[in-house]
Design a protein around this nucleic acid. Structure first.
Lengths: 352, 352
DNA sequence: ATCACAACTGGGAGCGCTCCCAACGTACTC
DNA sequence: GAGTACGTTGGGAGCGCTCCCAGTTGTGAT
């Protein structure tokens, strides 16, 4: 029986390493020891040019590719990072924000030659299993997107000493490293823009109360009103859940409370799109009767009619920044959890 | 690049994730051998109930979580699957199709307790590195989305004997396992719908010629015309690249060739959205003057004004099916490359 | 009592790699 | 000449697990 060929895997499912050469074989062929090949592969300076050349030739001849699994086991580092998105799929579909984050993360990770493990966690049950997953030593760090205030995962991760970075913070004083966009300033700018156009009765459709991002945008709304010398009226604030349906319901509510409102700032484009529909249904013209501004500058914003003025978040850049922060944390844990707040940009279109 | 490796090798202690218990420690605590613990963890029937209970208690007490890296190395199976999306990020953002595929894949993979490795490959250079990645023994199989006709990856994968499943096929006689939606039938239904509404001059904005999906939808268009007793006119076919801009340019072209066209079937919603803009700009009313149908039933379709009639692809289900096929291939390679073609559904809205 | 056979169980032998250390030059110094 | 320093190098000792093979025990048949 050939031990060389012998492969594991229960149920007879062969190990599929059809003769893939190992470090050892490269070493034999190059006439050097394992350690030397390892040094060459990992770019150590401690190898003489001639030896290096010989090893590289052997690698080329054999078509050797290092086994990352073995490397991970021996070195204790997996060179992989998990991206956790604890959201129902509807949002994943409709919010290009996620796609942009993923794209940014992917780009930056590829540059660092790290791998991306994607985890979509719809429900709490899956979330629980995730803990085991992550402690199963398969990733060096975790990227967490769209965390709710009561999300326990970040703390769990800290407990098992797995570096993590959030996109967005759970609270104002977030204790875990994060990257966020300047939601307060973005909202402020949007509302100031509305005020600047002479709108006097500016309502807002805020995000969920249990998400910092919702609170922040609402705070920006209030700040802008106050700066413009307007009184903040609680009856001009309605809450939505970032969905189109939620936005529509919120708009209906606002219209009922204040039929004369002449502007709406929605904390997401999807909610703005819902509001747009409701305003239309209620016979309001946009922007003539009611100006409308959204948040996210998503594809939806460009396709409504009229196209939505919206606050652009640098989602892709946020993804990249998250990775940079995470890799730094993996290399060396910093004493203070670092964070980064990126600026937003108001994109003015026909709706305001 | 990784000089500051954190311990390992010798001394036994000091490894990265502090006191995570090992199989061996569980064995010691339960007073059994390693093999027995392994059997319990992997659900073997060959363990007496008492022993099993003892081991399970030890596992619970110690909070033991198997190390997947070690398992992968020893067993030769990684329990991970790569999802490769060789697309520029623009499409990833704008086409909810990808998000839906990802979501389906993720769901099905989670159910099988497998991990999802996501790889976005913008350019050919990254694509090349991918080969090494994949042969680096980190995944048991590969899911490939949106493959162009000249994509070499599937064949490369077959060469290194890594099971793969495509979403969509490269050619009519695809030799690699795939899951596809019935593009021909979908297009046929869309065009038949247009003909059924009395449209006589039905143009199409087809997808890229080098993608099977483009060809298939074009074929469906022709079949439907022929079934309706209409002559296929080549001047009523324009090609786009699945983007909005491409759709707009194609619509301009069509309008120039045949000002009297009264319907357009676009091979994607994004192209339909572009066409809608161009039709408007050219003074045509939709649907009164020109009826319009898209493909994909994406979020865009719902947000244009009028909302687009579109062909829905079961993208999420396709993702799930891909995983099922792949897992089957991993378990046991089938002689004939299996494939699955899922039905589409016409969603009629205001544009037609 | 003996034997055959099954049901269990322990632990050796790796999987392919990284780490580290001792050992080897070689080139200087004193 | 011995002594010191340093740049290289080979290979032992694991990393935590699975696989598999010999036990070991228990059971029923002879």
């Amino acid at each position: 029986m050939d031990q060389v060929r012998r492969v594991g895997g229960k149920g007879g499912v062969g190990r599929r390493r059809g003769g893939r050469p190992t470090l050892e074989e490269v070493a034999a062929r190059a006439g050097v020891g394992r350690g030397t090949v390892s040094r060459v592969v990992n770019g150590s300076q401690q190898v003489s040019p001639e030896t290096k050349a010989a090893v590289e030739q052997a690698i080329a001849e054999l078509g050797y590719v290092p086994d990352r699994t073995a490397r991970a086991l021996a070195a204790g580092l997996t060179d992989a990072v998990a991206l956790v998105i604890p959201e129902p799929e509807e949002r994943l579909f409709s919010e290009p924000y996620f796609a942009a984050i993923i794209s940014g993360v992917s780009t930056e990770l590829a540059a660092a030659d790290k791998q991306l493990l994607l985890t979509l966690n719809r429900d709490a049950q899956e979330r629980r299993r995730l803990g085991a997953y992550l402690s199963g030593h398969r990733v060096d760090g975790v990227l967490l997107v769209s965390v709710h205030e009561d999300e326990p995962l970040p703390d769990l991760l800290r407990q098992i000493e797995l570096p993590a970075v959030l996109s967005g913070r759970r609270t104002a004083g977030e204790a875990v490293p994060y990257v966020d966009s300047d939601n307060v300033a973005g909202a402020r700018e949007a509302v100031a823009h509305l005020a600047g156009r002479g709108r006097r009765s500016i309502a807002t459709i805020a995000g969920p109360r249990d998400m910092y991002v919702g609170q922040a945008r609402l705070a920006g709304y209030r700040e802008a009103l106050s700066s413009a010398g307007m009184r903040a009226r609680e009856d001009l604030v309605a809450y939505g859940d970032f969905t189109e349906a939620g936005g529509r319901a919120a708009a209906r509510e606002l219209l009922a409370r204040e039929p004369d409102l002449d502007a709406v700032f929605a904390a997401s484009d999807l909610m703005a799109a819902g509001a747009l529909r409701e305003l239309r249904a209620a016979g309001r013209r946009v922007p003539e009767d009611v100006a409308l501004v959204g948040f996210d500058d998503s594809a939806v914003a460009r396709h409504t009619d009229p196209a939505l003025t919206s606050v652009r978040q640098p989602a892709m850049e946020m993804g990249r920044a998250m990775v940079r922060l995470l890799l730094a944390e993996i290399a060396e844990r910093s004493a203070e959890p670092p964070h980064l707040v990126l600026p937003t940009e108001l994109v003015v279109r026909a709706s305001s």
